[in-house]
Structures are given as structure tokens and as C-alpha cells.
Simulated scan of single mutants.
Amino acid sequence: MTFETWLAFVAASAVLLVIPGPTILLVVSYALGRGWKVAAPVATGVALGDLTAMTLSMLGVGALLASSATLFTLLKWIGAAYLIWLGVKLWRAGTKLDTKARTDAGGAARMLGHAWLVTTLNPKSIVFFVAFLPQFLDPSRPFWPQMAVFEATFVTLAFANAFGYAILASRARRLASSERAIRAVNRAGGAALIAAGTAAVTMRAA
């Protein structure tokens, strides 16, 4: 892959990770209830969960790429449409998030395992990776080296994002319950997803 493609992947991944989803809500709930010390274990669990879901997803994409270039191209078109649909859905989302503080007992290992399970077993994660990653793959280049780079990059960003959310949530509890802030995040994230999907379609139509 080219350096420009990698940078585009980094930028798109960063935007997508910042958008609050089930995993981030779990991170925030732990941080609200137990403070900044949860940041490392829950962020590690999120990163491992994304690694698991991403690997499972890309094994399927790799098999599809090897079997049919036409089907792979079709998957990329479907992926672009999926990104746009996610963006519209997020733009129209409500202003409230379920960020109730978690004060239940449990050590670092339990929190790590919980974050890993929530991230891995969320069916939307695998669907998302199948739709998102093919936008950046070059069918003319070896699949596995590209996969290794994308996985390492995304997992690193996922850890940093979850860690950052935990720290911010532990220090800014009012922001987590601010409808204005939530609305702004939802609309900004929705617009970014719509733009990403539209750009993917435009680049392939050119």
C-alpha cells in the first residue's frame, strides 16, 4: 500500500473510533464509577476485542478477494453504502447516551475481559470491519502484509481512543451527560461517515 493510503486509513479510523458506540459507553461507564485507574485495563480489553473482530472479518474478506475480484469490488460498493447509512443513522440519533456509572466489584482482569467480550461479540463490529477495510486494500498487492499493517494501526488507535475516553470521562462527568455535547458528537460523526462513504463511491466512479 502507499503511504497516502495508510494516512487515509489512519484519518478514517480515528474519526470512526471517536464516535461513541457500545464499547465506548462501557469504557465511560467504568470510568464514571471507578475513576481513571480503569483506563489501562478497559483500553487493553477494547484493543484485544477489536483485534479479534478485525481478524475474523479479514479472514472472510481475504477468502473473497482470492476467489473473485468482481465480488470483492461489489463488497466495496456495499461497504461504502453501509458507511453512508451509518452516518445518516448517527446524524438522526437522539441526544442521550446510556452512560450510567458502573461501581460493581471486580479487578483489572475482570474489566479487561468484559471490555474484550463486549467489543468482540458485538455483531456490528464484524459487519463494520468487513464493510470498512476493503476500501483501503489494494487487490494487486499481497493481502496478509496489508492486513498486518491495518490491524496494528487500528488496534493502536483503538487503545489510545478508549484510554482517552476513560481519562476524560473520569474528569468530566458533566460532559458525559450534556445533551448538547452528545448531539454535536453525533452530528459531526454522522457527517464524517457520510463523507467517507461518498468519497469511496466517488473514487471508484472516477
Rank of each mutant, 00 (worst) to 15 (best):
A152V: 15
A160K: 06
G107R: 11
F129G: 00
P123N: 05
L133M: 12
V149W: 09
A188Q: 09
A152I: 14
G113D: 10
G197A: 07
A192D: 09
L193F: 15
Y165D: 02
A131R: 00
G197K: 01
R102I: 15
S140A: 15
A181H: 07
A109I: 12
P123S: 02
E151K: 10
G190F: 03
A108I: 05
D138T: 06
L137S: 01
G107T: 09
T153W: 07
L193G: 01
T198R: 08
A188K: 03
G189R: 02
Q135I: 03
A195G: 12
S177A: 15
F143K: 04
E151C: 05
A115K: 00
T103V: 11
F129C: 00
S178N: 12
A131N: 01
F132N: 00
L112Y: 02
P139I: 14
R187L: 12
P139R: 11
A166W: 00
E179T: 14
Q135L: 06
A200W: 01
F129M: 01
R183H: 07
L175N: 05
A162D: 08
F132I: 00
G107M: 11
V155Q: 06
M203N: 14
S178I: 09
R187M: 08
V118E: 00
L112I: 01
A181I: 13
A115H: 04
H114R: 11
G164A: 13
A184F: 08
R174D: 10
L175S: 11
R180P: 03
L121N: 06
L168W: 10
G197H: 02
T99S: 11
T119L: 02
S177N: 13
G113K: 09
E151N: 05
G106S: 09
V155G: 05
V149H: 06
